[in-house]
């Protein structure tokens, strides 16, 4: 219970950065923190006490493994997160090269 709650608090920290920060890099950091929170939550949901990693090493033994499905879902999501983060940073760079600032309030003022 407290383990899942810490994931959700990490999610809330990321959301706090996105909603209230004015610096674009801080907003990107908030997005990455939310990605970590969700990946961590999935991996913790699949954990089984006293079980092994889901890799078969011997035939004919009773299988006591953790849940492989959340791990399979998260495995692809981690790599995708890197791609989307790079896309986000590229857009941030374009904004910086045009307005010479990371402050979203300034950017709103300079528009038009």
């Amino acid at each position: 219970m407290i383990v899942f709650a810490s994931c959700i608090i990490l999610f809330l920290i990321g959301l706090y950065a996105i909603v209230t920060k004015r610096n674009l890099i801080k907003i990107a950091i908030g997005f990455v923190l939310i990605e970590y929170a969700i990946n961590l939550f999935f991996a913790l949901v699949g954990f089984k006490r006293g079980a092994l990693a889901p890799i078969i090493t011997q035939l004919d033994t009773p299988h006591n493994f953790v849940d492989p499905i959340p791990q399979a879902l998260v495995l692809t999501a981690i790599v995708i997160a890197l791609g989307t983060t790079a896309l986000m940073l590229t857009i941030i760079l374009r904004i910086y090269s045009r307005y010479k600032t990371f402050d979203i309030a300034e950017i709103k003022k300079l528009k038009g």
């Binding site: 791609g83 790079a86 760079l93 090269s97």
Partner: peptide, 20 residues
């Protein structure tokens, strides 16, 4: 696919010094 994709992303980001 993943290796070439990430490397091309990195190359595009590294080319920004010419863009800037």
């Amino acid at each position: 696919k993943v290796g070439a994709g990430l490397f091309s992303i990195f190359l595009a980001l590294a080319a920004m010094k010419y863009v800037m």
